[in-house]
Amino acid sequence: MSIEIGDSIPNMTLMTPTEKGPGPLSTDDIFNNKKVVLFAVPGAFTPTCSAAHLPGFVVKADEIKAKGVDSIVCTSVNDAFVMGAWGQAQNAEEILMLADGNGEFASAIGLTMDGSGFGMGTRSKRYAMIVDNGIVQYLGIDEKALENSTAEAVLAAL
């Protein structure tokens, strides 16, 4: 069963790229007492994720933050090194890149997909959330095409 509007984000640790290598960051630190836009992609450097999903949030970051959002967070079932390199390649300075390397966060919120047919194993579904003080206010999940989890969809929900 997946997370729903009104549910709390579970307290877990994700990894973020830092100058000294991967660093832990708890979901409590990310979401408590903040308004956060979280979006997830099946894989860094993959076609739709790199051509449309992350770039949409890079372009719209100022508009999203102008709506009272404290931070924009991108997560994927990749390691922190990959997330850091992808963020740099995409000029995603305004976006906190988080690695869910073992897929534990995606699993805990019930938003995994089976990418084994593509040699990718268990990955995160493509989705976006608006989270206010740790509580999900909006959840847009994409099963096929990129539509419910775009920066534009999040802006419309804000």
Rank of each mutant, 00 (worst) to 15 (best):
G87I: 04
T112H: 03
E63M: 14
S71I: 13
Q137V: 06
A66L: 06
I64Y: 11
N78A: 08
Q137C: 08
V77G: 00
A80I: 06
G103P: 02
P24R: 07
D28R: 15
I141L: 14
S116E: 10
S76F: 00
S116F: 07
E94R: 13
M120H: 06
I109M: 06
G84C: 03
G6Q: 06
K144V: 13
L38M: 14
N102W: 10
L139E: 01
T27P: 02
L14N: 05
F118K: 15
C74F: 03
T75N: 09
D7H: 07
V136A: 01
N78F: 06
S71Q: 15
A106F: 05
A151P: 07
N11G: 12
G140V: 07
T16M: 15
L96S: 05
E93P: 06
F81G: 11
G115H: 09
P42Q: 01
Y127S: 04
M15V: 08
N32Q: 15
T13A: 08
A80H: 03
A66N: 15
I95H: 04
D142W: 03
G121W: 08
A61D: 07
A151T: 05
N133Q: 12
M97I: 05
G121P: 12
I109N: 01
K34W: 12
Q137M: 10
S71M: 15
I141W: 00
E63A: 15
G115W: 09
V41W: 00
I135C: 09
F39V: 12
M120A: 12
M15C: 11
L139V: 04
N78P: 02
G6H: 07
N102H: 11
E152C: 08
T75D: 08
A85I: 06
R126G: 04
N91G: 13
A52T: 15
T46P: 02
V36R: 07
D62I: 10
G101I: 05
K125W: 11
F39Q: 08
A156S: 14
T112V: 12
S149E: 09
G115M: 09
E94P: 03
A151N: 06
I109S: 02
K125R: 14
A128K: 01
T16D: 02
A106H: 04
L158C: 06
A89N: 12
D79F: 05
E104G: 11
V131N: 00
P22H: 08
V59G: 09
Y127A: 02
T48P: 04
S26F: 14
V58S: 05
V41Y: 00
G21C: 03
I95K: 03
V36W: 11
R123I: 10
L98A: 04
P47R: 05
S2V: 09
C74T: 07
I109Q: 01
E104T: 13
R123W: 12
H53I: 07
D28H: 15
E63T: 12
F39L: 11
A106K: 00
M97F: 05
K67Y: 10
H53S: 05
G101E: 10
I9Q: 01
V73K: 00
E104K: 14
V41E: 00
V73A: 07
V69K: 01
Q90M: 14
Y138T: 08
V77Q: 00
Q90G: 02
G21Q: 02
A128S: 13
A145N: 13
A52E: 15
A80Y: 01
D79G: 04
C49S: 11
M1W: 07
T112D: 03
F39C: 11
